[in-house]
Each structure stands twice: as structure tokens, then as C-alpha cells.
Amino acid sequence: MEPADKLALNAFKTDEETHIVIQQETCRECQEQYCLYVCPGGLYSFNEDTGDLVVEYSGCLECGSCRVACPHGALEWNYPCGRFGVQYRYG
């Protein structure tokens, strides 16, 4: 089962604004690309046309693994605003 199919079962309230800001210049140079592996939702990917790192922030489980794993501090990571983000029904 793909993570996207699992995330579809969760309750999310999506903000219009992202809570994860990516410093593209740093990410373009990145060798490790840890975020691609560490994110439990598999939400990070590189856009093949632009070379930009993209995060599907609306499916974020708010664990913060990407912030911890990034060796370059290229992710400006905040919790989503109150009212938004994942709402666990089991936890």
C-alpha cells in the first residue's frame, strides 16, 4: 500500500499556506536528500521540470522527521496554524 492511500484515510484540515518552507537553492545542491526517505508520508519529491523540491504539506503527519534529518537546515518547519493539519482520531 502506498503512503498516499494510507493518508487518504486520515482526517486532515488543510491550510492554504504551507507550514514547511523550502530553501530551494540549498536543496538543489543537496547530495543526501534525506527528506525523500525519512518522511513517513513520502511527501517529498523533486519536480523533474524545475528541479525544485516539492512537499505535499497537506498530508503532513507533523512528526518533524524531515526537520531533524535535514543536514543543511534547509527546511523552515513550523507546526500548522491552530485549526489546521492532521487530526488523529486514534493516535
Binding site: 494510507k6 493518508l7 484515510l9 503527519l61 512528526c63 522527521s65 492532521v86
Partner: peptide, 9 residues
């Protein structure tokens, strides 16, 4: 039946 997928640090 899968009911929820979660992650935590």
C-alpha cells in the same frame, strides 16, 4: 481494515 496512519518522533 486500516483506520489510520500516523507518525511521531
Amino acid at each position: 481494515e486500516l483506520a489510520e496512519y500516523s507518525a511521531h518522533i
